[in-house]
Amino acid sequence: MYTQGLDSPGREALHASSPDTAALEARFQARVDADEKIEPKDWMPEGYRQTLIRQISQHAHSEVVGMLPEGNWITRAPTLRRKAVLIAKVQDEGGHGMYLYSAAETLGISRDQMMAQLLSGAAKYSSIFNYPTPTWADVGAIGWLVDGAAIMNQIPICRCSYGPYARAMVRICREESFHQRQGFEIMMTLARGTPEQRRMAQDALNRWWWPALMMFGPSDAESRHTAQSMRWKIKRFTNDELRQQFVDITVPQARFLGLEIPDPHLRWDEASQHYVFGPIDWAEFQQVLKGNGPCNRERLEARRRAYEQGRWVREAALAHAEKQRQRAAQAA
């Protein structure tokens, strides 16, 4: 669900310019322009393939790492209903990671390769998950703001030119419709609860607001990949367009909750019919992206630990399958 950081730089080869390639590329671009879907075995420019691999795998990693901050609260959820909902939600995130890894695998990279990139720290994931979840209200704020921002990012990708990515996204968007609503419901319960609960809700909003705005990625002026990605219809709106749309719909929701957006510059602009918001601290964004956020270390370590400690299990399953194969061969 979490697509920020997907513009972070990769090293795809620039287009080769032999006449053959030029013709293939022209035909490819014509198909994209005609809104035809590109499927796994179709010819595609290497840059397109690499951009997709990078974007889809980062998206998948984000889902998987994204299980951790909310997963913190599964054992402490305040009611059994909330516990069940949270388990189902975190489980969905794992499922969405899998749909996305599946889609990326159609481009000729294995899940193991992608996992290795994540665990070595080479691959990026949405840096929103490097923020901590110290209180129950964080579960509400993540659902409301982080899932809200993610949905806004993801809906356009349902129309992405690459078939497997678009199909995975359709499924993900359909399943995620409950995630944001459950988050808002948690915030609403807290906002209408005891003074301590209201304080908890406001505190979570204070901590998640700016990171949520950063989820849309660097501003258009800074974003390296936007133009090419838009031409290839991997991306349909710019980072700033989506960010503005998010602010415009979220501010009234915060008002409804009786919570205050932590931005002294925030105001409604009658002329443009949009909210104007204060400057984003991109230095912080860059720091978190570089690995210096509050929980980068913990998140990666948790993934590495799960991977390392699960190795004997995965190996045993393969060994058993091999034994079964041999037994079947002998019996035949």
Partner: peptide, 11 residues
């Protein structure tokens, strides 16, 4: 959940 030996096992 989030710590299983394979993603499929998390689910």
């Amino acid at each position: 959940i989030g710590h299983a030996p394979a993603l499929e096992e998390d689910l």
